[in-house]
Design a protein around this nucleic acid. Structure first.
Lengths: 192, 192
DNA sequence: CGCGTTCGCCAACGGTTGTTGACCAACGGT
DNA sequence: ACCGTTGGTCAACAACCGTTGGCGAACGCG
């Protein structure tokens, strides 16, 4: 068991590839898709712009490779029903602040079709299944998950992208205390 | 009383100026700041790109002139306290769907510093005073207004920008029914 | 030690962008 | 009827973008 994963070519340029992805994430998160130039990414990574093209094919390919989001949402099954809101909000805040991938995805998704579609994919593949575990009426699952997404994305937008001072000033505990009941109601309340 | 406002130069080019602003709003709303080119705006307005420069100085000046937002928020004074949430959400939905200025501002604000600052201005000048009318503790007004903004902006983001299918499928009544209690609580609930 | 493969840089291409200045035509007060 | 002012077009500039191909150098397997 030398390799943990079956695909491990272990090329000599892995360090460069990783540096490119790191720089790309940072640029996309700070500038959005259009203003994040390949030249700037290459400069941050300390290499030539043509290397980015060789390793990732195009700017769109670079974006696709750089913004691979895994929300690592917890299993809500063993949790008491009245704690799912608090658990989800806490988890979202932690994931959002531990790296800048989500900020990059949100910034790009707001003015780029491919970015918006990728964000839809994250919603469908990662948030919907979790909502499925706790929603009462199966038919309402997409709507309830979407409502949850509006609250979480809205907080992320105001706090990490637009940087509204009052939203930035809130502590994590305060945010959880305010948003948890909202998410809790969106997911589990019997009535609209 | 020929002129309703004191400043009414009534230039011969007013029609062109208005056409430029209309086209600019549409382009900014559809494409964001960078991809909305002056050339495309001029083409939509049926004139030469250099006219845009002469009338609005620069692309940034065009954006500043095109995205002048007036939320026309209602006076919440005479309203029963338990109806402010529903009234605000209903009003927000109406304003957001009646023209594309807010979508343009949101799209641009997500990846442009000037856009984000302008959105902060709208928040401070228009939402904060309204929150002042209904918040219990004066010290909590900015935080409560910001929480309201996160929910409204999050819904706008998911519905009008990212176009999450479940968020688009919701009717206005359903949105009001779901969001009104949230906004109501953010603004008027005594306790976090 | 050879030699194919990988890594990286350099220079350039075609295209697009914001922006500018010269030039023409229609207006409108005197 | 004149002529300054305004509305509008055209062509071009400099800068920047994504992208490409060629060339040298370092690697690593035989």
């Amino acid at each position: 068991m030398v390799d943990s994963k079956p695909t491990a070519p272990s090329r000599r340029s892995d360090a460069t590839r990783a540096a490119i992805l790191d720089a790309a994430r940072e640029r996309f998160a700070a500038d959005g898709y259009e203003r994040a130039t390949i030249r700037a990414v290459a400069r941050d990574a300390g290499i030539d712009p043509s290397m980015v093209m060789r390793y990732y094919g195009s700017k769109e390919g670079l974006f696709a490779a750089a913004v691979a989001v895994d929300l690592k949402l917890p299993d809500l099954g063993p949790l008491p029903r009245e704690e799912v809101g608090s658990a989800l909000v806490t988890h979202f805040l932690a994931v959002w602040e531990e790296n800048e991938v989500l900020t990059a995805l949100l910034r790009v998704g707001a003015s780029n079709q491919a970015g918006a579609e990728r964000m839809q994919g994250v919603f469908q593949d990662q948030l919907l299944p979790v909502a499925q575990q706790v929603c009462p009426d199966p038919e309402q699952i997409p709507a309830r998950a979407a409502l949850t997404a509006t609250q979480m994305l809205g907080m992320a937008l105001a706090r990490y992208v637009l940087r509204f001072p009052p939203a930035v000033a809130l502590s994590r505990q305060e945010i959880v205390a305010w948003l948890a009941p909202t998410v809790q109601r969106y997911l589990t309340a019997p009535n609209p």
